[in-house]
Amino acid sequence: MSQQKKPGWKELAIGDILPAGTAEKFETGDWRSERPTWHPERCIHCLFCWVNCPDTSIIVENGKMTGIDMKHCKGCGICAKECPVKPDKAITMGPER
């Protein structure tokens, strides 16, 4: 049982305290019913997707988009909607496989 792996009261730090950012280990990627696909060749690296992502799932390195964190992306589609590239967007949504 997974219950047994959890720490007991003697092992837990006291006072309901947590080190920062542990949610990175919690994957929400399996929430997706729709899946974003990034098309790097169309991307203008405006980062509108990044700044509007509720799940911090647009990966940006040195000011350029480099991919999507599929472990955490919930597939909301805001990134695709906010992508300004025309006529074909640099992020498109499709059914989750």
Binding site: Q3, W9, L12, G15, I17, L18, P19, A20
Partner: peptide, 25 residues
């Protein structure tokens, strides 16, 4: 340098342990 979250939500799997810590204290 050591950022922490204090006052997180404890559900069925942790609340009891934290309350026992108070009882012990």
């Amino acid at each position: 340098d050591k950022p922490t979250t204090l006052g997180s939500i404890d559900l069925q799997d942790y609340y009891f342990e934290h309350r026992v810590q108070v009882a012990e204290a």
